[in-house]
């Protein structure tokens, strides 16, 4: 029998409405309120061994203290899964449910599920960390919400893992994973095209993103002849033994190497480890990727004030936006610390 602990606020526990929102945390044995609906759905497979109740205001007056007490109670009971709510569109209650689920899952390693309305504040705060089934905006949707909560909760308790968000009726947590499709690619592709040609509804298997928020252009440099300029590339040019182990694709690392070392280009020589372009021309002459000879000449002619003495490199092939943004941030911090005022980047 799967053992379940259920979390509720004062209203659903039957203590009272807004006037009782400061009801303190308490532990009750067995199922209470919506827990009885869950109990019916569980049949013989699971039981609610304990119900934890806390008033909405009481919880948020001291979230750390309440969470500590809740975690201690759950640790002692050691259930297979914790269910919270459903909280529908109730702001404070949904946040408390999600906070309880996050703490239970992250501190005790016990699976935890709540249910909220997709526009509820809890989704913004906990949406990528907490498993949440989608509910209607009010308790009128209790039957469907409890059904989804029970389905997903028991599946996690059995160790079976999540289904894709739309199959679970969950609010997406923002990550994608591979699954075996129900139909071959060609069938799906032609079905989708035929739907388009017949003006019938269809669902793209990948949603296009919202437009990237543009970065406002940085101010232009006022006088190039007084500017320190750095050279940066995503073309994977590294000393041939690749001492910093920059990945040849899907990079998570960047490095910088002295321009003097690149100018010498022997022992070690430089070569590209980038797995996304044909690097033979760059290997033969790295200036084709990092324009050192040209930039040095412009420095000597006084066109620029100074060439920063390092070049910066990573691999831009299959590199995720998250890592690219982080590495860009890290390189920018280094450049600012070194007094660099402008950069020339090359990409492959």
């Amino acid at each position: 029998m799967i053992r379940v602990v259920h979390y509720l606020n004062q209203f659903f526990a039957g203590i009272g409405g807004e006037d009782k929102a400061d009801a303190p945390f308490e532990v009750r044995e067995g199922a209470v309120g919506p827990g009885r609906v869950l109990k019916m759905l569980f049949g013989d497979e699971a039981e609610i061994v304990q119900t934890l109740v806390c008033g909405d205001n009481a919880f948020h007056a001291d979230p750390e203290g309440n969470l500590a007490a809740i975690i201690a109670a759950i640790a002692e009971t050691a259930p297979d899964v914790v269910l919270a709510g459903p909280a529908f569109n109730a702001g404070r209650y949904g946040l408390a449910c999600a906070a309880v689920c996050a703490a239970v899952n992250e501190e005790l390693g016990i699976p935890a599920v709540t249910g909220v309305y997709p526009d509820a504040p809890a989704v913004d705060v906990f949406g990528t960390r907490v498993v949440m089934v989608a509910t209607r905006d009010s308790a009128g949707g209790m039957k469907d919400a409890a059904g989804r909560l029970a389905d997903v909760g028991l599946r996690l308790a059995r160790g079976e893992g999540l289904l894709p968000a739309d199959e679970d009726g969950r609010i997406p947590m923002g990550y994608r994973a591979n699954r075996v499709a129900d139909k071959p690619v060609a069938t799906r592709a032609l079905d989708m095209l035929m739907a388009r040609l017949r003006d019938e509804p269809f669902t793209s298997e990948i949603e296009l993103p919202d437009q990237v928020e543009p970065v406002p252009p940085a101010p232009a440099v006022a006088d190039l002849s007084k500017t320190t300029v750095a050279l940066i590339t995503e073309g994977g040019l590294v000393p041939e033994d690749n001492p910093d182990r920059i990945e040849s694709s899907s990079a998570t690392k960047w490095a910088r190497y002295p321009l003097a070392m690149l100018a010498k280009n022997e022992n070690p020589a430089f070569k590209s480890i980038h797995a996304g372009y044909d690097s033979r021309w760059v290997d033969a002459d790295p200036n084709r990727l990092v324009p050192l000879d040209a930039a040095r000449a412009l420095e000597e002619e006084g066109v620029i004030g100074k060439l920063h003495e390092y070049f910066y490199v990573t691999t831009g092939n299959g590199t995720t936006v998250t890592h690219a943004e982080r590495m860009g941030e890290e390189i920018a911090i280094q450049l600012i610390a070194d007094g660099v005022q402008a950069a020339i980047l090359t990409s492959t």
């Binding site: 990550y175 994608r176 591979n178 989708m192 388009r196 269809f202 990948i206 995720t320 936006v321 998250t322």
Partner: peptide, 29 residues
């Protein structure tokens, strides 16, 4: 798709607004 090892990144390398009917064959990551 190339959504990163944890799957949280945007899965496409390059998009145009017109490509709003896409069949996914899974992530290389």
């Amino acid at each position: 798709e190339a959504a990163g090892a944890d799957g949280y990144d945007f899965p496409l390398f390059y998009t145009v607004p017109e490509a709003d009917a896409i069949v996914s064959i899974g992530s290389e990551d």
